[in-house]
Write a protein that binds this DNA or RNA. Structure first.
Length: 601
RNA sequence: GGCCCCGUGGUGUAGUGGACAAACAUGCCACCCUGUCACGGUGGAGAUCGGGGGUUCGAAUCCCCCCGGGGUCGCCA
């Protein structure tokens, strides 16, 4: 192989002393001392100092004076020990330097629009416009590398488990039942469209029918929905499916995958092993969400039985109307100001909860047994006895100096969600999330269906291919809301990182579910006929899961958004700011696709 | 579609009704400098304050509309 370089900048050390090397890279920084010039030369592997001494080469020294930041240069020189006292411990290559005897400028560079050699905050739209420069920065380079390591680890791991990686098409059929599809017009078939896969769900099930048994793919998925910090129009998931398995097999495999991945890639990160398991009901009950961040502690507890003994009408009426009174304890927050409490009340109000009560448990440093009513500055002291307050404090695991929040409501779900939001806000304010912990958990026992009030129809909690639990199958006809699905999620630090299920593998049951979801026979045939027919040719029992690669890498890098781990992400309005996509196309292109643009009113 | 935040020399910030002919840091350009490593020194250039309209004697600053970016609710089988 012929390269313009013999070594990379970052690999050089004392072992190379005396070696004649040729390096090529970018000028990270130039320090011109007049008679002597230093260049920090950067390539993918790191930075090394190059010395241009006119006594070694007058020509090199002159060329170096022309160099500027981000110029692409090649240097031939000798690796030498730095003079004693001039070593740079901040640099991995800081013991040595390269004395240049030959150099040339391979390309010049305009002054970049932002710093590449410093880690400063830069407006994201500018970074995205010049993403190729942004990716030169150390932080982004490290993120790209870590992402590669994650995907490499997954491939190696699954290979040892007997999985094979199979590609599935990007141009498939629109079967609208979930997110909005990205569509591609057909030139050959006027008026017809392909859809980009929202996930390879049906394809991987067909691969199971094909007898592949263990399949995976690092798959691009496309969903035309609004973006979030952890959502992009196109994203990458590890798509995985196995035949002849039950829920437990999939969970054990994924647990082993994630534990060994984290140990290998981020050994300093702590995890709870084995991963705790929560049912969907427990998650909602104790955390007010189906993707709880277990690092925060502060579990929600039901207080209805205690306050039922009080004469506080807010509590009593909530309970009488079939609702709940629940609470949460904010450690050490008894001294919160009125203003802070109003702000927190706002959080609760935003999700539609009323009946917000605060109970500060006096000053810190003392037993809860010594608490007196006078210490508790709350309206609730008029209606709650000291003993009731102590019972509440005990149930919430509270100490003196803590602040209790109680929410009463006739709709239990809103009480849970409000306390869940409050918990997240308190977690942020109290910085309870340990960045060196990855709190993986499994969420299991989801309902199969939920009733959509707006459309007046049953909808799939996960997707329509999820199998009901065997013992619940008979309930499908009489009480669909009670049916649990063989559906499981993996949640980590409050982020849903994977969802999967054991699938339906008979056409009979699959048809029944489609009908329950409101499709008529014709629609079922038109949209899912291919899948149902396949099930009639010996489809094996099968199931799988789909972890989100972007989210996993985001958690491992400690980034706040998945855009930081995607080389070329879209903006919130789904634009590619590097290419300025989407863009208009020519009239000829439209005509070939048999399309005419509508006049927007 | 709703709500919230941001937009000031290349970059990051300050300035929130008059003393702004817009400040600071860094970057950039020129000159000086042989051991620096965020080198140092001297000098210099660089901003229609995102765009448009309005209020006012006076607007970077207040109001309205638009554009761009971000967060979030809805949405995300």
């Amino acid at each position: 192989m012929i390269l313009l370089k013999s070594h990379s900048c970052g690999e050089l050390n004392k072992k190379h002393l005396g070696a004649k090397v040729t390096l090529a890279g970018w000028v990270n920084r130039r320090r011109d001392h007049g008679g002597l010039t230093f260049i920090d030369l950067r390539d993918r592997e790191g930075i090394v100092q190059v010395v241009f001494n006119p006594e070694v080469s007058k020509l090199c020294h002159e060329v170096a004076s022309q160099m500027r930041s981000e110029y692409v240069v090649r240097v031939s020189g000798e690796v030498a020990l730095r003079p004693p006292g001039t070593e740079n411990p901040k640099l991995p290559t800081g013991d040595i330097e390269v004395i240049a005897y030959n150099t040339d400028i391979l390309n010049t560079s305009k002054t970049p629009p932002f710093y590449i050699n410093e880690d400063t905050e830069i407006e994201e739209s500018l970074r995205l416009k010049y993403r190729y420069l942004d990716l030169r920065r150390a932080r982004m380079k490290e993120n790209l590398l870590l992402r590669y390591r994650v995907v490499k680890f997954i491939r190696d791991f699954l290979d040892t488990k007997g999985f094979i990686e199979i590609e599935t098409p990007i141009l498939i059929k629109s079967t609208p039942e979930g997110a909005r599809d990205y569509l591609v017009p057909s030139r050959v078939h006027p008026g017809k469209f392909y859809a980009l896969p929202q996930s390879p769900q049906q394809l991987k099930q067909l691969l199971m029918v094909a007898g592949v048994e263990k399949y995976f793919q690092i798959a691009k998925c496309f969903r035309d929905e609004d973006t979030r910090a952890d959502r992009q129009p196109e994203f990458t998931q590890l798509d995985l499916e196995m035949s002849f398995v039950e829920e437990e097999d999939i969970l054990n495999l994924l647990e082993e995958l994630f534990i060994s991945m984290v140990k290998t890639i981020k050994p300093e990160i702590r995890m709870t092993k084995p991963f705790p398991r929560l049912t969907y009901t427990e998650a909602m009950e104790y955390y007010g969400t189906d993707k709880p961040d277990l690092r925060l502690g502060m579990e929600i507890r039901d207080l209805s039985d205690i306050v039922a003994q009080s004469n506080f009408s807010i509590f009593l009426s909530a309970i009488a109307e079939g609702g709940k009174v629940k609470g949460i304890c904010a450690p050490g927050c008894a001294n919160y100001t009125r203003h802070q409490l109003v702000e927190l009340n706002e959080v609760v109000r935003n999700v539609g909860a009323e009946g917000f009560i605060t109970l500060p448990l006096g000053a810190s440093g003392g037993s809860i047994n010594d608490l007196t009513l006078e210490m508790v500055r709350s309206v609730a002291t008029k209606f709650l006895t000291l003993d009731q307050i102590k019972q509440i404090a005990e149930r919430l695991g509270a100490n003196r100096g803590d602040l209790l929040f109680i929410i009463a409501g006739k709709a239990s779900k809103i009480v849970d969600v409000a306390l869940g939001e409050l918990r997240l806000e308190l977690g942020r304010r109290l910085k309870l999330a340990d960045p060196n912990v990855l709190a993986f958990i499994f969420i299991v026992d989801f309902p199969l269906l939920w009733w959509n009030e707006e459309t007046g129809q049953w909808e799939a909690m996960h997707h329509p291919f999820t199998a009901p639990k065997d013992e619940d199958a008979s309930l499908l006809d009489v009480a669909p809301e009670k049916v649990q699905g063989k559906h499981y999620d993996i949640v980590c630090n409050g982020c849903e990182i994977a969802g999967g299920s054991i699938r339906i593998h008979t056409s009979e049951l699959q048809r029944k579910i489609f009908k329950l979801l409101g499709y008529n026979d014709d629609e079922i045939e038109e949209r899912f006929g291919h899948l149902l027919e396949a099930f009639d040719y010996g489809a094996p029992p099968h199931g799988g899961i789909a972890p989100g690669i972007d989210r996993i890498v985001m958690l491992l890098t400690g980034e706040e958004t998945i855009r930081e781990v995607i080389p070329f992400p879209k903006s919130q309005t789904a634009c590619d700011l590097t290419f300025s996509a989407p863009s208009t196309i020519t009239e000829q292109q439209l005509a070939e696709l048999h399309l005419r643009l509508r006049e927007e009113s």
